[in-house]
Computed example of a mutant assay.
Amino acid sequence: MSSALLPKPQRRDLLASRLRKHIRVAFLFSVGCAAEYKFGVAEPRKRAYAQFYKTYDVMKEYEAMRKAGGFKSAPPN
């Protein structure tokens, strides 16, 4: 009577069946994390750098650092 109430435990391939499930879950989780990083961090960072360098003037920055005394070989004017 008690054997009809409880199912028999799986004795063979228990590890293999659990690993199949967990590998799928881990793969989906890692793909999700990679996509989240790409679209949440990397792409906004690329856009921010591109926007910064659109208006960045190297010579203006150099002159400001030179006047502030940032270079020892180029005396300030």
Rank of each mutant, 00 (worst) to 15 (best):
K46S: 13
K60P: 02
L14K: 10
N77D: 15
F29T: 11
A35G: 14
R66G: 03
K72P: 03
R66A: 14
S30Q: 09
R66P: 04
N77Y: 09
V58G: 00
L19G: 03
F27L: 11
R47F: 00
Q10E: 15
F71S: 07
Y62F: 15
M59R: 12
F39C: 06
S30M: 10
I23K: 11
F52N: 05
A48K: 15
P7N: 05
Y56H: 12
F39K: 06
Q51M: 05
A34R: 02
R18Y: 02
V25K: 10
A64T: 10
H22E: 15
Q51I: 01
R47A: 10
F27T: 13
A34I: 01
R12W: 06
K38L: 13
R11P: 00
K60S: 10
R66F: 04
G32S: 07
F27I: 07
F39Q: 08
Q51C: 00
H22I: 06
K54S: 06
F27V: 11
F29S: 08
F52D: 05
L15P: 02
R20K: 14
G32W: 01
K67G: 09
A4W: 04
L14H: 05
E61D: 15
R45F: 10
S30C: 07
K8W: 06
R47C: 02
T55P: 01
A26D: 05
A16I: 07
K60Y: 03
A64H: 07
S17C: 09
L6H: 07
E36P: 00
A35C: 12
S17A: 13
K67P: 02
S2F: 08
